Simulated assay, not measured.
Amino acid sequence: MFGLGWAEIGALIVIALLVFGPERLPQAASQAGKTLRNLRRMANNARDDLRSGLGPEFQNFDPADLNPRNFVRKHLLDDLEDDWNNSDRSRELEPAATAPYAPEPENALGYGEIPPYDAEAT
């Protein structure tokens, strides 16, 4: 529940008892519940009004998709995963990619050798 353990919930109850007192605590909890219910109802109404105002083309619209993290995951990363799953590379890996070591290139320098100097490159 909200990432709280039993120790945190117990501490919150003790703090609430100290702040509100045993007489006013049930009334405060009831008021907090009503406020939370009203906020949820207002958010749901706003979402429904937005969907109805956008028209039938956007019936599947979810405001959470506007969060940049969700947007990137949905539009960029899912496409990459689809491309990877549909490609031949996902079914068959090249033997060099599965080898525990990479073969040495033909023009690799030996220990202590100095690489060639190209004056035009610097």
Rank of each mutant, 00 (worst) to 15 (best):
G21L: 01
D79G: 07
I13P: 04
S30V: 04
T35Y: 09
F71V: 00
L109K: 10
L80Y: 09
L50F: 02
P68W: 03
L109M: 14
A97I: 04
L76P: 00
N107Q: 12
N85C: 01
G3S: 05
G5P: 01
R51D: 00
Y111E: 15
D65Q: 01
W84E: 12
T98C: 13
L76D: 03
V19E: 06
D48Y: 00
P103H: 08
A64N: 06
L12Q: 13
S90D: 10
I9L: 15
A46G: 01
R37F: 14
R73T: 09
N86C: 02
W6P: 05
L93T: 07
A121S: 15
P105I: 03
F61D: 03
P95I: 08
W6Y: 11
R47H: 02
Y111D: 15
F20P: 01
E57L: 08
A46F: 02
N44S: 09
R47A: 05
W6N: 12
H75V: 03
N107T: 04
E106H: 04
L36V: 14
A97S: 14
F71W: 09
D88G: 13
Q31G: 07
L76E: 10
R91T: 12
L93V: 03
V72Y: 12
A11Y: 09
I15W: 04
I114H: 04
G10Y: 06
K34D: 15
R73C: 04
G53P: 00
N86W: 01
L25A: 11
G21H: 08
R69D: 12
D48I: 00
L66V: 05
E92Q: 13
Q59N: 09
R51S: 02
G5L: 10
F61L: 05
N60A: 13
R91E: 13
V72E: 11
R24S: 15
A119T: 01
A96W: 04
E57F: 04
L39W: 07
N86I: 01
A32S: 10
Q59H: 08
P116G: 14
F20A: 15
A96F: 07
F58A: 14
G5C: 13
D83H: 05
E106M: 10
K34Y: 08
R37T: 06
P22W: 12
N70G: 00
P115L: 11
Y117N: 08
L17Y: 09
W6F: 14
L80Q: 12
P116K: 12
Q31L: 06
N67V: 06
I15D: 06
G110L: 04
Y101D: 11
D49G: 07
N38M: 02
G55A: 03
L76Q: 03
D82L: 09
E81W: 07
E57M: 05
E92I: 15
R69V: 14
I9V: 14
H75E: 10
A97K: 06
A102M: 04
T35N: 05
P103S: 15
V19D: 01
L12Y: 10
N38Q: 13
L54T: 02
Q27N: 08
A28F: 11
E81P: 00
D79N: 03
V14M: 13
I13L: 15
A28S: 07
L93C: 13
M42H: 02
L109E: 12
L54D: 02
A97T: 10
D78S: 11
P56R: 03
L66D: 07
S30P: 00
P63D: 03
L25W: 01
L12S: 14
D65R: 00
I114D: 11
K74Y: 06
